[in-house]
Design a binder for these strands. Sequence first.
DNA 1: TTTTCATGTAACCTATCATGTTACATATAG
DNA 2: CTATATGTAACATGATAGGTTACATGAAAA
Lengths: 157, 157
Amino acid sequence: MIGYMKRDSRLSSVLHALLHMAELDDPMTSEQLARCLNTNPVVVRRTMGFLRRAGIVVSDRGHAGGWRIASDLAAITLRDLHNALGEPDVFAIGHRHEAPDCLVEQSVNAALDETFAEVQALLLKRMAHVTLADLADDFARRHTVRNSHHKEHEQDA
Amino acid sequence: MIGYMKRDSRLSSVLHALLHMAELDDPMTSEQLARCLNTNPVVVRRTMGFLRRAGIVVSDRGHAGGWRIASDLAAITLRDLHNALGEPDVFAIGHRHEAPDCLVEQSVNAALDETFAEVQALLLKRMAHVTLADLADDFARRHTVRNSHHKEHEQDA
DNA sequence: TTTTCATGTAACCTATCATGTTACATATAG
DNA sequence: CTATATGTAACATGATAGGTTACATGAAAA
């Protein structure tokens, strides 16, 4: 890999999973999702468990069990998912000491916190405006474009 | 600690260091800075080295050596420091696969990238507007406020 | 009811990475 | 020359996201 992994890729993972689930009508098992996500079924259960506890998905055990989306795609936002995942830290940049004695460090921390808090607020606002339905539409559009490109190529050849 | 450490606290560190340096007229040694920052002189050299290579600070070896700020405080922005540090990842949230085969995952990644890129742009813009002089002023103001609070307490007692 | 298939979860392993540390080379003022 | 400073390589440490194993629990099918 060129770069390196972000600290938390669960949001990306659950989005990926949810969109696959949205395409199918039957529930998907952790096993199936794990294959989609290139990961382990236990990791899927662990991560999807956050969404279950938030009421975003439903899981059924036993035969014909698996994971289902609980509500309408248009009603689930990125912000909902972020919240469900426990509102993990957004930024990889921050200060080391939470409550430093040094007045200079306090001042630096306060200034940085102010800037980062404002930006985080914007991010959360944006995330609250993007729904799963939007992403599904995005996907459909891209897929269509890709197909028409294919056709153009076929015509070229 | 309650939360956990952010992945990169170097921006906070160099700000802390630079403000201490700004208060003094003489150069400060890595040893002195390390005491201020509660860290190791080698870590200071390593981190400040980025600023040296970017021309933000100057280091002198030998007797009476140490670190000095190269230019005016009003000319150095948070963005400059961020750039000097190699423009590290701003977000702790991201996707796992840089170039996934799965079309769904591609779509998810693109949507997330779009949102995060916009927010990152705002952050960098904000950082470009905050100078070391601003932070020094902030500090002076806070320090004054704190002193007057002290005086009030003394009057109360 | 027994079997099979699914989730739920605890407990551990592993890779990665920021930071800390040791050791030593290099430069410079006195 | 010596003392004092940075420069840097090499390695240690600690935290953590994600992977893995093992097993309990529950539900449908046989």
